[in-house]
Amino acid sequence: MSTTPRVSSAIAGEPAHFGSVLAHQPAIAESFFALYGRFWGSDVLAARIKEVARMRNARVTECGFCRNVRFDKAVAQGLGEEVLDDITDGYETSGMLTDTEKAVLRFTDALIHDPELLTGDAKAALQRHLTPAQIAELGLGVTLFLALAKALITMGLEPEVMDRTVLPTPAVLEAAE
């Protein structure tokens, strides 16, 4: 896995990172950030649940950038490091994660790793804990997390070192509405 950017920044004076590289394709960038802001801005599914799925994806795909970013909305909803530490193999026995979060993690693992993991019990648990609208939003999120992580990795945008960084949760820019 390369930590040397395979694409240059399209923004003068900025290093290569996802935003500056995506700027080579302004229409894609604008559309992605509008979608991502809308997704995170929706409260159909709590930000904490979305972040649990995002962190699992980060760890399975080995996306170092994703792994070290925290979104502030989820932190404010109580998703601290002691909970995140349990989003690893063996999360089923965690005392920190809720049953809803464990169902979400099983779904996330099935989508990003092996669809066979979504057994009848796992599917029933997901549908017991989440409404159809929440499952749809979760499915969109995991799809985007996975695609974003793999695009980052294959474009060589992984940081060599990175501290844990709390960022503002993506939001829809009012000017874009």
């Binding site: 979504l118 499952i135 499915g139």
Partner: peptide, 11 residues
């Protein structure tokens, strides 16, 4: 992968 887990069916 979303198709393989039958995301529309889950919803």
């Amino acid at each position: 992968r979303a198709e393989l887990v039958d995301l529309p069916g889950l919803v």
